[in-house]
């Protein structure tokens, strides 16, 4: 019969059309979590995740732009972990990291702290190589993607610094693994000293 292929295709489209209504009815009755269901393998019917009220599930490994981690001291001071070793600036493929290492004003010798730290977000390609090769866990990839603005985005040290508690909230598994490694290293150092 001529037209059989067209009718078969139309049957598939109608099937999906009715599924979207059936899913709405099922959601009214059972009230399952919408976003999780629509990201699973059983998703049927409508597929939309309504941003900005809802958001897709962001996995832990998601990388957007980098940020610098600081540890909070007892009196609220910010101990930045970065020692301005420069490895992230050397590893960055488009070379979008600028670091000025601070020097001791009296002796003129370098101090392991960055005086200035710039990342140009208009060049950054979100590859994560800086976070992968940092030996001090000082620069990590952020999850925050809502950084569109009316001007160009050149981030300086103030804008880049975020607390370690924020890092723990976005990447719990990685944070746990790194903290155990740090504590093991500190314990080994203390044992070697004694």
């Amino acid at each position: 019969m001529y037209g059989k292929g067209l009718l078969k295709g139309l049957s598939v489209t109608f099937n999906r059309f009715f599924q979207s209504y059936l899913e709405d009815i099922r959601w009214l009755v059972k009230k399952y979590p919408k976003v999780e269901f629509r990201s699973s393998k059983d998703t049927r019917g409508t597929f939309t995740v309504e941003y900005p009220e809802q958001s897709v599930i962001i996995p832990e490994e998601f990388r957007f732009v980098p940020f610098l981690v600081y540890d909070e001291g007892e009196h609220g001071e910010k101990n930045i972990r970065c020692t301005s070793c420069g490895i992230c600036a050397k590893a960055c493929p488009p070379q979008c990291i600028w670091i000025v290492r601070s020097t001791d004003p009296e002796t003129g010798r370098p101090v392991p702290q960055p005086a200035e730290f710039y990342i140009d977000f208009d060049i950054c390609m979100n590859c994560g190589l800086c976070a992968e090769f940092c030996p001090f866990d000082a620069i990590k990839m952020d999850h925050d993607y809502e950084i569109s603005s009316y001007t160009r985005n050149l981030a300086d040290k103030e804008r880049l610094m975020k607390p370690a508690s924020y890092y723990e909230s976005i990447r719990p598994e990685n944070f746990k693994r790194e903290e155990t490694a740090r504590e093991a290293k500190a314990a080994a150092k203390a044992a070697a000293k004694a």
């Binding site: 732009v65 977000f121 950054c124 993607y145 569109s148 001007t151």
Partner: peptide
């Protein structure tokens, strides 16, 4: 008028 950084920005970043 608006700059959206990212490489590529996720669709949610574009909507924002």
């Amino acid at each position: 008028d608006v700059y959206i950084p990212g490489c590529p920005p996720t669709p949610q970043a574009l909507v924002k």
